Simulated scan of single mutants.
Amino acid sequence: MSVLNRSRVACQRLCGIVLLLSMTITSQAEDYPNIIIIYADDLGFGDLSCYNDKAPYKTPRLDQMAAEGIRFTDAHSPSTICSPSRYGLFSGQQIYRSTGRGGGAFEGPSGPSYLKPGTLTIAQMLKNQGYRTGVFGKWHVGLSWFDKDGKRLDGGFKNSLLIDYEKSTPLIDGPNARGFDESFVTPNCPNTDPLYVYL
C-alpha cells in the first residue's frame, strides 16, 4: 500500500475535515508535491505521537507523513470553533472581518455559505496552478437548501426534514462551486446536527 493510500486510511479516522490536494494533471506532475492538510476538531498539539512520544495514542501513519513531509510547529487556528476556523483555512481571511455575519458555527443544514461567490479559496489557488483538488470530511461553512416552494431554509432538525433535494441541487455554494474537483463531505457536525448525510 502506498504512503498516500495509508494516509487516506489514517485521515478517515480523524473527526474533522481532510483536504486532499493531490497530484497535478498537467505535464509538470512530477514537479509539484502532493499537499495534504488534515484539519481536525479537538486535536491538541500533543495528541499525535509525531509531536509527543508520550502521546496517549500512537499515530504511525501520520508520524510517517510528518517524517517524510514538512511539520508546522507554530500554526494557529483562526477561531476556536468549527465553521469560522474552516472559513479561515479555505479563504485565508478572518470570518469576523469579511463575512459580516459574525463567527458562529452553523447549526443543521443552514446557509448560505460563509464563502461568498468570488471568494478565492485555497483549492481554487492550487487548481489555478494545475493541481487536482478534493475535500473529504466535514464541510461546515454553510450550504443553501430550499424547500418545495423554493424558500431557503435555516438550521435546525425541523428544517432538515423540509429539504427538497431536487430544488437544492446542484449545490450553489458547495465544495465543487468553491474550487474543489472532488468532494465527499458532511454538511455539518455529523454527530450532533441534523442532516446526517454525506454529499
Rank of each mutant, 00 (worst) to 15 (best):
M65Q: 09
A66Y: 00
E68L: 14
G69H: 12
G69V: 08
R71A: 05
R71D: 02
R71C: 15
R71K: 14
F72M: 13
F72E: 09
F72N: 08
F72V: 05
F72Q: 11
T73A: 09
T73C: 13
T73D: 12
D74M: 06
A75M: 11
A75F: 09
A75K: 12
A75P: 10
A75H: 13
H76I: 05
H76E: 11
P78E: 03
P78H: 08
P78W: 08
P78C: 13
T80F: 07
I81Y: 02
C82T: 15
C82S: 15
C82R: 02
S83Y: 00
P84T: 06
P84V: 03
P84W: 03
S85L: 04
R86G: 03
R86Q: 14
Y87M: 06
Y87A: 09
G88H: 03
G88T: 02
G88D: 07
L89M: 13
L89R: 00
F90W: 06
F90G: 05
F90V: 04
S91Q: 01
Q93E: 13
Q94Y: 07
Q94G: 14
I95D: 05
I95V: 14
I95P: 12
Y96T: 11
Y96F: 05
S98P: 09
S98W: 04
T99Y: 04
T99L: 02
T99N: 03
R101Q: 09
R101L: 06
R101S: 05
G102K: 10
G102Q: 14
G102T: 06
G103L: 01
G104A: 10
G104S: 09
A105Q: 12
